[in-house]
Design a protein around this nucleic acid. Sequence first.
DNA 1: TTAAATATTTTGGTATGCCAAATTTAATAA
DNA 2: TTATTAAATTTGGCATACCAAAATATTTAA
Lengths: 219, 219
Amino acid sequence: MRQETIENYLKTIYNLSSNNTAIVSNSQIAIQLELNPATVTEGLRKLHELKYVIYEKSYGTRLTTQGAKLALDIVRRHRIWETYLVKELGFGWDEVHAIAEELEHVNNTKLINKLASILGNPIYDPHGDPIPDEKGKIKKSNFIKLSEGLVKGNYTIMGVTDHSSAFLRYLEKNALIIGAKLFVKSIEEFDQSLSIVCQKKELIISSKVAECIIVQSND
Amino acid sequence: MRQETIENYLKTIYNLSSNNTAIVSNSQIAIQLELNPATVTEGLRKLHELKYVIYEKSYGTRLTTQGAKLALDIVRRHRIWETYLVKELGFGWDEVHAIAEELEHVNNTKLINKLASILGNPIYDPHGDPIPDEKGKIKKSNFIKLSEGLVKGNYTIMGVTDHSSAFLRYLEKNALIIGAKLFVKSIEEFDQSLSIVCQKKELIISSKVAECIIVQSND
DNA sequence: TTAAATATTTTGGTATGCCAAATTTAATAA
DNA sequence: TTATTAAATTTGGCATACCAAAATATTTAA
């Protein structure tokens, strides 16, 4: 199996299993990697043989210790590169994801550690995602989705779960950036849209958007 | 054909045809890319169809305008990365080639131009190889191999044609670095080894080494 | 608890990139 | 110029990474 293929599967499984439960379904992986389900079944069988995952037929897949180790390394490379592109090379946070998707496959520990060191060994990337350290240790947080926030709650935006340019530009347009503080004025019962106050401006955001914003409570 | 495969062929053909004549043989490519000759025949047939090369059966191959354009772009990316790794990230000139082999395939013009700009748009990389500009224009030079140098000639080292770590470390050990000035004291008739003076120290170098050092005359 | 819907796997098939061995073509030396 | 050697090509084959369609499981809803 090509190294890049392995890395893409493991990264995807890691990302899916950390958001949701530990077990990941084939269809989730297929959608994420834009592959036919048949291809994913094959891929998981091989990754199981290679001992990167525990794949149980028609049930689900989870990473082995070895698989998680590699997944965390890819995630680290990806997030260090994103941070470096934004902080040192002047890219916008909405354009770095695609470049980092390629750079993450360049396997050179010294290079990544050097970039991390220049950046001051950051713990979060420009999207608010935690960056694993060299040993794969990751800062655990008590962050929640804004969609889980409470009426009259005060929150700080800590990250996003959607990295598409379209979404990131939408946020920027509305000043919904990392570190911004916001107040939940009300939640519409019908469609769960939120009326919030951010930077003294009031705006309505859909539940779909709120699902993709990670916040920390300030109360 | 995978983009990376195309890029590796074109880069190799470019490197081989600029040193020697314009036409490159299959066996040269096979050795350089560490591929079976049968594989190279196939590859060249496909590159011909894609109009990247003119491949004439049992005769040889040369780049088309389109092929040369892409080749020069890869060479640019490779050499900018090498320079960036040495100048900005503190890598040794003997260790950057392998990393640049991977980084060169990341296709993002803005990224390369940004790196180049930080470096002050350099014309030579750490090995003395010229870096094509964004349009593929390359600085032509009157450099010669040290093996073509004359007795009692004064020269400045401008580059190398072998990028192996072993060779680069040998040079460093003997203070034969880019920019060093040297004087050819004598040439041994029997084996064409050179007796040179560099940094006030005298040393003997084999014709094989002299073949791989690029110099400019100071006389 | 069954029927319908959804998810997963199997089967059969394609394209790419590679190689070894056999054959053909070209180059070199006698 | 012919025999030898070397280079290039063809042939047949393998592994990977895919997919579409059919078959099988599993889940959900009636």
